[in-house]
Design a protein around this nucleic acid. Structure first.
Lengths: 338, 338
DNA sequence: GCATCCCGTGAGAGCGCTCTCACTGCCTCG
DNA sequence: CGAGGCAGTGAGAGCGCTCTCACGGGATGC
């Protein structure tokens, strides 16, 4: 409850001895106003510690001045995945420059999703950055169809999607990782793939296959085993691969968590890393440098991607029509496993 | 950009063949409306997939229907402290029940703080839950003075603060921990304290002293060494304590991170836990059960405290005047270090 | 010296909603 | 059978802001 009713533009104008219109001009920073009037208004505003009423403002401008960063994940995952803090940092940085308030929304339940849709459609935010969209989740397209500016991280699986996105160069990164293994002398390179209901899973496998072919190695299904982006999944996949390809000497894991599982399985099998088998992961998660031995991995510029997502969203909000997807370059971080 | 202009109450009313007032009544769920009119309005609204314009609504109701959960921390700390996900979960749960949208705001820089104040004062949110307020940070009182309903977690250090808060029973919890050590046979019990610029540091030390006295042990300054709630701080403090009190056989660490440091230092000194020295922490962080050996600790009901914070904030927003602070009970979780 | 320009300003409409007030018509009651 | 009541409805004001439009007056141009 405001102690008294909050000061309005009207009261500022009255105190400054000008009309509401003039006061508005000054506060909007725009247009031609006499220095005298400007100063009077500014003083009045600060004396009353005036803050414009957002509701009134957005009623006419149809802008709220804030955007949502939406994470569709259980709360625990949100806090345990190293990806989110980095995206948040990047997006926050750019939005702060543009004087846009970022609000974070974690959607764990169907009910929360629904509420958020009403929230967004009601004009509470001018747009949304969706991170961690799974499979063919219709949420992004749904919001976009409702006229809400939306961008997302990661290429959508649905080819019909028109939502602009920012993605790491997963194919290129996987090629780099694979090439690195081959160049380090590996002759029997295998891969632990990500989930195939995500685009990222497909792309990292595709890069692996392409690079193999480029070096005259032949790809066959037995060289790839599906993981689920978890440590346990990586371990299980490695065990399966070892059974099928006992002489494997290089492993490309489609993310670092699985790479950690790979290292565990190799250690359990008594295979030295990098002496007997070389391993490369993907993501450059904090865990990568903390692993034993420290993991060679492919870094994606997540902070920059967060910035780019924010920039992109503002472009969509400003109605710049053809917002092209962005593919961010990856780079190899060489540590001890290769 | 909305594809077409969004449907308004006016257009719903027109389609339903009633006046705006009647349409409003139906959608507000209130008052006496004929079944026929009600049904017509409902159908029109759903056909147009009408969502009320929040700006217009809050302009008149002076309510936004959302509240902020504000974390004054660097982004990394926000993601690395196990406290936040739990508070968030609790608050989110209660707010969802009351149909209030929660927005999360992370304030890392002075600039972001300032922006948030304008954001809140502009009426974007109806109130704020502040977690992780440090020392005598004036932010809570500042917001409260500006007429923004505010509640906070943790008792403020400033005795003049009028901001309602939810705190764990830190004194009681510390007493429980200390009593437990004494009852397990410890004769020389020491404590690693939290930072003294936080109320929680004071209180956990106070509980330690009280319980010591209650058992006829005398407290002296050499039995307490200041830590900073970090693992490294806990280790350093333990080394200092060991130098001063070589025959110590019980350590109460004011949080689990420091307790982990205590365990490290004791291991380094070759002192068996719990054989030679018993250790109790505070918080029941995930790390506590993962430590070697698993840590006995004092649990605070953080999820419930999050709920309570949300409930409290809604009470303040609804203008229920005397909102009393809440002190949540703690409980001992016995594991292997005692 | 008179028409033209434009700078600084104020009046006023209107964004979409909520809420009060007044009106109509039907039902109830004396 | 007339007065009162009340359910259902509509008209309209107004929340605080932005933005267009029009207007007075001083400077400029030929």
């Amino acid at each position: 409850m405001p102690s008294a009713s909050a000061p309005t533009l009207e009261s500022v104008a009255a105190r400054a001895g000008v009309s509401r219109a003039t006061a508005g001009r000054v506060l909007a920073g725009s247009a031609r106003v006499s220095p005298a009037a400007r100063e009077a208004v500014l003083r009045a505003a600060s004396e009353l510690s005036y803050v414009p009423n957002q509701a009134a403002r957005s009623l006419v401008t149809r802008r709220s001045g804030s955007v949502a960063l939406v994470v569709v994940e259980p709360v625990e995952r949100f806090f345990n995945d190293s990806y989110f803090p980095l995206v948040l940092t990047g997006a926050q940085a750019l939005l702060a420059e543009r004087e846009v308030q970022l609000v974070l929304v974690v959607l764990s339940t169907a009910r929360e999703r629904e509420r958020f849709e009403r929230y967004a459609r009601g004009g509470h935010v001018d747009g949304a950055i969706l991170v961690s969209v799974h499979g063919r989740d219709p949420l992004p397209q749904h919001l976009a169809d409702a006229g809400i500016p939306v961008v997302m991280s990661g290429q959508p699986l649905d080819p019909a999607s028109t939502v602009p996105y920012v993605s790491a160069d997963n194919v290129g990164g996987a090629r780099t990782a694979t090439r690195h293994l081959i160049e380090r002398g590996c002759r029997r390179v295998v891969t632990v793939t990500g989930p195939m209901d995500m685009r990222v899973g497909h792309d990292r496998l595709a890069g692996f296959r392409e690079e193999l072919r480029a070096h005259g190695h032949r790809f066959s299904a037995k060289l790839a085993e599906g993981g689920d982006f978890t440590v346990a999944g990586g371990r299980a996949a490695t065990e399966a691969l070892l059974a099928r390809v006992p002489d494997l000497d290089g492993v490309f894991a489609a993310n670092d968590l699985m790479a950690a599982g790979v290292l565990q399985a190799l250690a359990a099998a008594g295979l030295a890393v990098p002496g007997r088998v070389r391993v490369v992961g993907f993501d450059d998660a904090p865990l990568a440098s903390a692993a034993t031995p420290p993991l060679t991995t492919v870094r994606q510029p997540v902070v920059e991607m967060g910035r780019e997502l924010a920039r992109m969203l503002l472009a969509v909000i400003d109605g710049e029509p053809p917002v092209a997807p962005v593919v961010a370059p990856t780079s190899l971080v060489q540590r001890a496993t290769s």
